[in-house]
């Protein structure tokens, strides 16, 4: 039986440094079989959490990237029209002989309609991510990424799937999940997500990590980066986040920068190094200047 501490440890082994809130959320999601809705600024490891979980729990990852205009045909299931057509073509001769025994048209229709379900059976069903994760034999991890990019209609469509873990297909009836997947929804908050969806999920907000955790994250990814540099760099980035930048550097930027610094074999931050590598942490022209200024102020 997994405990919260256990969650933290196996995430750590998977290279993801979780804090208490994240560990508790994952633990509850595993035990209560409820989806987690993760919000937070971009690049703090929302999708990363799902990937790390999938790797360390050995749940196959089923990922659904949301976009404007996504619909059930792309997310839940679809019928394979081409295959259905092909089969009717191929079976045409078979059908003739099958129907020739019937005396009149009425009987032929009856005979045919008794076989109708053949064409709307699972043979012709294309499994899209959600259905695939529901029918997966192993418990899977369903990642519904950037749900805020989809439209409201799609959100409404998800309600049934997320609360009951079932999908209603008019031709087939209700399909229930064989193993309820561990479901993670992520959102960058570009659009308000409806309360109905929020109610069905555990809500986890991942913000920028605390100093020690961020250092631990850097150290976990780049063990050969020396401790003092990691600390110096994380402290610098934390100050940069307070600069009111258009795109504040996130954890992903921290990691990119750590990689750059370890490639450059830097041993200490200097204004020159920051000026040379500023493109890794600042992503807007106006931000570049602010960050280099900060470097001169803080490190010069």
């Amino acid at each position: 039986m997994i405990t919260e501490q256990g969650v933290k440890e196996f995430l750590h082994q998977g290279g993801y440094i979780a804090d208490d809130a994240i560990a508790t959320a994952v633990f509850l999601a595993l035990r209560m079989e409820k989806p987690i809705l993760i919000e937070g600024p971009p690049g703090v490891g929302k999708t990363g959490l799902a990937k790390a979980l999938s790797a360390s729990l050995d749940f196959p990852l089923v990922r659904l990237q949301c976009y404007e205009g996504i619909d059930e045909g792309k997310a839940l299931y679809d019928w394979e029209y081409g295959k259905q057509l092909l089969y009717t073509q191929l079976l045409r001769t078979q059908l003739d002989s099958y129907l020739s025994v019937s005396a009149d048209l009425r009987e032929a229709v009856e005979r045919l309609s008794s076989e109708e379900s053949l064409f709307f059976s699972r043979n012709f069903l294309v499994q899209r991510p959600i259905l695939r994760s529901f029918l997966s034999e192993k418990r899977s991890l369903l990642l519904i990424d950037e749900i805020d990019r989809s439209d409201d209609e799609f959100e409404a469509l998800l309600l049934e799937c997320l609360s009951e873990f079932q999908i209603s297909i008019p031709e087939l009836g209700v399909i229930e999940a064989t193993r309820r997947p561990l479901t993670i929804l992520t959102s960058n908050g570009t659009r308000m997500i409806s309360d109905a969806l929020r109610r069905r999920c555990l809500y986890l907000y991942i913000g920028y990590p605390e100093l020690d955790r961020e250092i631990a994250i850097v150290r976990a990814k780049f063990p050969d980066l020396c401790e003092s540099l990691a600390r110096q760099m994380v402290e610098f980035l934390r100050k940069a986040r307070e600069l009111n930048l258009r795109k504040p550097p996130s954890v992903s930027e921290t990691l990119d920068w750590a990689q750059v610094l370890s490639i450059l074999k830097a041993s200490q931050l200097t204004p020159e190094i920051v000026a040379n590598t500023v493109g890794v942490i600042a992503k807007h022209q106006t931000d570049l200047q602010k960050v280099t200024d900060l470097a001169v102020r803080e490190l010069g």
Binding site: T24, G189, Y203
Partner: peptide, 11 residues
């Protein structure tokens, strides 16, 4: 933390 995870759904 537990109560916040389950009861609060907005930052």
């Amino acid at each position: 933390q537990l109560l916040r995870l389950t009861l609060v759904k907005n930052v």
